[in-house]
Write a protein that binds this DNA or RNA. Structure first.
Length: 983
RNA sequence: GGGCGGUUAGCUCAGUUGGCUAGAGCGCGUGCUCGACACGCACGAGGUCAGAGGUUCAAGUCCUCUACCGCCCA
């Protein structure tokens, strides 16, 4: 005899054993040679977690959902590839390591040579990559582990070089002087999406600027105009003051000159429609705060930059890269002592000093409280400084002529986005319906972003990342151009006018280290910046498969199928993958984008380190088990935006206090139930003989559970196809716990003691258990595999001869998804059992109401109409078994015995005999009567409404009539009994 | 400022195209230690579906407005 399942479900043991099995057998490996006529490929690429830190619960959710999808498809016999890996996360990782080294060693990045510092980050990456991959395995993620990639490994680096070169050659990469989002703390540029907007309680300062010559306005001598600003320190770089031409004062003032305080610079008053007209009564806050005069600082404000371009204003940068006031970066008229005093001050110090100066000079007219949005670095959290800087850009709306044949040309309808521009390549598939968001509403985020897309700044002043493969040299050196001319295929170059004259920039194609060396030997300098992290992330779906090489993996698994991610990176990441997928690999990288919810704590706050409300997946796995965690996460995944997960502290044996959630109990309880039900089933499978099965001998409970199984199988399959997660789990929960455990297993117990019925029951039991495990496997893979392995020992063949063939597998993870079993569906049987269940519940209710011990066998009878009575009589045994009856009689017009308690079930009256508590019975009947009367009144008034009868669908009216009749009968019965009791 | 989501039982959430007396899990109450499971079994209590108005024979569901909570973008 084989050993049974252990009595207690121990998640840790099962998870360890099962993981060993899976990994030793390489079940998750996807082989490019296998897909063909019969077998199709199915691909999901993991959103590569950042190597900055260990995974949190959001990752657990994200990866659980991906695993459910990939396991489902693998069981559906797709060649399913889940590509794993991690992301170097440039700025984020570098910042984390910088902070740690500063805290532990008191050293800054600049204290290290570049190579050495990068090595330190590499070490951090190695540590966290190991942690992360370990976490994913602990969660049960069925990734193709040997394929694991890292965005900076050799394979990905090659793709980055190839993609960059292609863009450069197509003229899509350019160097531009632009106002960028500058983070003075980390001293790097941030993309628009990396800027977080926070509302700040700040001030509007009203500064008076003197006119060079006083001006008479409507008879009044005017010596000053007043500008309002939230950032007074930028006034040092003002090169004009603008006013709206519609302002009545404009005709007197436009063209006049001002003397800029502190600096003494003479600047003009210009007319620009961008300026908001003052209006104290306006709804618009800006109009209420406006003076009508806008100081224009082109070097330090994006709007002013635009105004400056329109009016050809000078651009004066007054700050050093660290955000301090400086005359070394473009400010040349800092001669006045007041101005020189400010040099070297931090921007916020300078703000205070300048406001103070205005106050002392009586030029500070007013200070008003003002709440406004200020951009902050998502990394260092300091306010962003708009800053003038040379950066590399990718042109996103420029038509790419060599793609017009494949992708067409002209504009995407209703936009200024050319079809064959990068933005167009990403936008068009959505509009064509080839790219789909689930839930659909997120398509709008994607679409709007692409329609309003600005060029993508891709250089970052960091050390950790893909170094930009561009070398430069001044053209004044006469050799420069000649040096390039014989390298045409391996190098592409452009010439740019810079402050230092003409400079040649050469991009070297990948795999030409010799060229790089020879250029450097001749004085060419490699760009010291690295690429935006999202550049390599954008290539992830194909760089991981070996692009630009035409590898078998790339041919088989690209384009992929599903991307599963959070909504916050729809713009940053999803759109860029589509863009680059189209541009580099010629097709969209996936068809379906599933956007899942964000996990919040019980109060609806984001989980974060600073709030201390995060949950470590490994802690949840430790406290409840990986399957329990997955079950709970999946069951909470509906298509809402947020998931609330109450957080509770827990003390570990070692005394540490950590967070977990009572929500995981739901999953743990389910797993425990599954374990025990399986254990019970297997205890009864000894001597199972598939050959002895005879479909003709199925009893009604068998036919019922098979029908329910078939229905559940179809529902779950449909739900998963539609990217539902909570729904299929709910269906399985109900089927397994309510149908299978509460009813079928209870009924099967007695049949197991009877040799006549045992053979059939055993076969059905084994079959249903097997199918149930398979349906549950994508959600809770460990426990289902553990039980399946045992089932393979105990009952190697699970088939129902003539109904369902055996399709065994050595592991459930590679077992086929249960086949459609439509012939097993039997609505008539389901209806009969439903009725049986109603009767059983009614009797249990009476038992409970009259405090009859569960062990006490009762006698009952049922007065039911002929058809119903016949059905019930046929199932007498089932009712007696689960209602605890020793005797049950069912017939039409059966009189009510004395001392019986009554329950009404549809058209039938159920009598439980020898219950002697007339008082309680009368109260019950009274209550019942009221309920029925109330329901009856509702239906009656509906039917009394002529409009309802005339306009509602006929079947609805018929239904109402039927209902009324039933209620009338019930009322009659109840009234009869009630009267009886009363007498 | 623009966009999106939410508000249903004490809690966390379901509720398809409008149609039986609005469901589940947890929690709560009562009773169960009968040979799988107390992480369990049975039964039960608990809801003016945020508010107002409208469409309709019929509204949790569709429309309008309001309030509150939250997210994304500028």
């Amino acid at each position: 005899m084989t050993e049974q399942l252990s009595k207690v479900y121990d998640s840790k043991t099962v998870e360890r054993q099962v993981n060993e099995l899976w990994l030793s057998k390489s079940y998750f490996h996807a082989e490019p040679s296998r897909p063909g006529q019969k077998r199709k490929a199915f691909t999901i690429v993991i959103p590569p977690p950042n190597v900055t830190a260990a995974l949190h619960l959001g990752h657990a959710l994200n990866n659980t959902l991906q695993d459910i999808l990939i396991r489902f498809r693998r069981m559906e016999q797709y060649e399913a590839l889940w590509m794993p890996g991690t992301d170097h996360a440039g700025i984020a990782t570098q910042t984390v390591v910088e902070k740690r080294i500063l805290a532990e060693e008191g050293k800054r990045r600049t204290d290290f040579p570049r190579e050495e510092f990068v090595k330190r980050i590499q070490a951090w990456k190695d540590e966290y990559e190991t942690t992360i991959l370990g976490q994913l395995k602990a969660m049960g993620c069925s990734c193709d582990w040997p394929r694991t990639r890292f965005t900076m490994d050799e394979v990905c680096a090659k793709a980055v070089r190839a993609a960059f070169f292609k863009l450069f050659k197509d003229g899509l990469i350019y160097r531009g002087k632009r106002l960028v989002n500058w983070d003075p703390a980390t001293q790097t540029v941030l993309a628009d999406d990396e800027v977080e907007h926070e509302t700040i309680q700040g001030f509007f300062w009203y500064l008076k600027y003197p006119l060079v010559e006083p001006v008479e306005i409507d008879g009044r001598q005017t010596e000053h105009i007043t500008v309002a600003t939230t950032r007074p320190e930028t006034m040092l770089g003002d090169t004009a003051v603008a006013m709206n031409p519609a302002d009545p004062r404009a005709k007197y003032l436009v063209g006049k000159m001002l003397r800029l305080p502190i600096v003494g610079r003479i600047i003009p008053i210009i007319a620009d429609e961008h300026v908001v007209l003052p209006n104290p009564q306006s709804e618009d806050e800006k109009a209420r705060f406006s003076t009508g005069f806008l100081k224009v600082t082109p070097a330090h404000d994006p709007d002013d930059w635009e105004i400056g371009k329109r009016h050809n204003l000078a651009v004066i940068n007054i700050m050093a890269p660290d955000g301090s006031i400086s005359d070394k970066y473009g400010w040349q008229d800092a001669a006045a002592p007041e101005a020189r005093n400010l040099l070297g001050m931090d921007r916020f110090e300078a703000r205070d000093a300048i406001v103070e100066w205005f106050r002392q000079e009586n030029l500070l007219e007013e200070v008003r409280d003002y709440a406004h949005e200020v951009g902050h670095s998502y990394r260092s959290h300091v306010p962003i400084e708009p800053y003038l800087s040379d950066q590399w850009y990718v042109s996103v709306k420029q038509p790419i002529p060599n793609l017009s044949q494949k992708f067409g040309q002209g504009l995407v309808e209703g936009t200024d986005v050319p079809v064959n521009s990068l933005a167009g390549l990403a936008l068009k598939p959505l509009l064509d319906g080839r790219l789909r968001f689930i839930p659909e509403r997120y398509a709008k985020t994607y679409q709007t972003w692409l329609e309003n897309l600005r060029d993508w700044p891709i250089s970052r002043q960091l050390w950790w990342g893909h170094r930009i493969p561009v070398w430069s040299k001044s053209v004044r050196d006469t050799d420069t151009i000649r040096e390039l001319s014989n390298l045409s295929e391996r190098v592409h170059s452009i010439t740019v006018d810079t402050d230092e004259g003409q400079v040649a920039f050469a991009c070297v194609a990948p795999g030409n280290e010799d060229v790089e060396k020879s250029l450097e030997a001749r004085g060419w300098k490699r760009d010291s910046d690295v690429l935006d992290t999202w550049f390599s992330s954008a290539l992830w779906p194909f760089s991981t498969l070996g692009w630009p090489e035409e590898t078998p993996a790339l041919r088989t698994f690209y384009p992929g199928d599903v991307l599963c991610t959070a909504r916050e990176i729809i713009t940053l990441w999803v759109s860029r993958m589509v863009m680059m997928g189209q541009y580099c690999a010629g097709d969209i990288p996936f068809r379906d984008v599933y956007i899942h919810a964000m996990i919040q704590d019980g109060e609806g706050r984001k989980m974060s380190k600073s709030l201390g409300n995060g949950i470590d997946p490994l802690i949840a796995i430790d406290s409840h088990g990986a399957d329990a965690m997955r079950f709970t996460l999946a069951t909470m995944t509906t298509d809402t935006q947020d998931i609330r997960m109450p957080v509770a502290a827990m003390t570990l044996p070692d005394g540490r206090t950590v967070n977990t959630s009572p929500k995981f109990d739901v999953g743990r309880n389910f797993c425990n139930k599954l374990w025990n039900a399986s254990r019970f089933a297997m205890m009864n499978l000894e001597g199972l003989d598939p050959a002895g099965f005879d479909a003709a001998k199925l009893d009604i409970s068998d036919r019922w559970i098979l029908s329910r199984l078939a229905a559940t199988r179809d529902e779950v399959t449909n739900s998963l196809n539609a990217f539902k997660f909570s729904e299929p789990l709910g269906q399985l929960y109900h089927f397994f716990w309510n149908d299978f455990c509460d009813w079928y297993l209870e009924w099967v117990k007695s049949r197991m003691r009877d040799d006549q019925s045992k053979a059939v029951a055993q076969n059905v039991l084994a079959f249903v258990l097997d199918s149930t495990l398979r349906l549950l496997h994508p959600f809770i893979p460990f426990i289902t595999e553990g039980i399946y392995q045992k089932l393979n020992e105990m009952a190697p063949v699970r088939e129902l001869k003539g109904i369902a063939a055996a399709d065994r597998a050595e592991a459930i993870t590679v077992a086929p998804w249960p086949a459609g079993t439509r012939p097993m569906r039997d609505p008539a049987v389901e209806e009969q059992i439903r009725l049986v269940q109603e009767i059983v519940r009614a009797i249990r209710d009476l038992r409970s109401q009259y405090n009859l011990a569960p062990s006490e066998k009762l006698t009952a009878s049922i007065n039911a109409p002929k058809a119903m009575g016949d059905a019930l009589s046929a199932n007498n045994g089932l009712i007696c078994q689960l209602a605890g009856l020793s005797e049950l009689q069912t017939a039409e017009n059966l009189p009510k015995p004395n001392n019986a308690a009554t329950a009404l079930v549809e058209g039938a009256q159920v009598y439980v005999h020898n219950v002697i508590d007339p008082e309680a019975e009368r109260a019950r009947l009274e209550k019942h009567k009221q309920e029925i009367e109330q329901a009856k009144k509702a239906v009656e008034s509906k039917l009394a409404n002529a409009n309802f009868v005339a306009k509602a669908k006929p079947e609805v009216v018929a239904q109402a009539r039927e209902k009324l009749q039933q209620l009338q009968e019930q009322l009659k019965a109840v009234e009869g009994h009630w009267a009886e009791r009363k007498s």
